[in-house]
Amino acid sequence: MDIFTLSFWGISIALTGFSLVKSKKKTFEAMKKSKGMMGNMLGEIIAIIFIIGIVLTFIPPESIKSILGSENTALATIIAAVAGSITLIPAFVAFPLVGSFVDVGASIVPAVAFLTTLTMVGIVTFPLEKKEFGFKFTFIRNSLSFVMALLIAAAMGVLL
């Protein structure tokens, strides 16, 4: 557990304690409500995690290198953005991987597109997001994020 997650544990436990002291009844009512809400999500989250496991098995992180290294930068950027939308590679794996590649002299545009869609667009988490916020919201948010990732990548290409 990194220091950030740990401090989050500390803060949330302290706040819950404070809430319990302030009003036991209100806190327990809130717990019941949250339990209902998160209980509904738990099954889906676990399902999604095991889907990620499958995706990572058949599209290993290393395979992204062949996409990023393509000759046609425009095409590579779009494919990289799609790959980033589908996979969910942990950031601490993605950064060194992309970094090593940029160091060798590959174009950064596809690399940025990949890094940005990796976190901002979630095809795998789509069903969960849809359930909480509705289809329209989820669809627009993910599509807009995809387009924005391409724009960010293009802008980075110009600026750097």
Partner: peptide
């Protein structure tokens, strides 16, 4: 990812409780 989930979800649970109650 399962480990990550168990590290984070209890905190999220407590935070939603705190937001709702406080």
């Amino acid at each position: 990812y399962l480990i990550e989930m168990f590290e984070v979800l209890p905190v999220i649970f407590l935070l939603t409780v705190v937001i709702e109650a406080l």
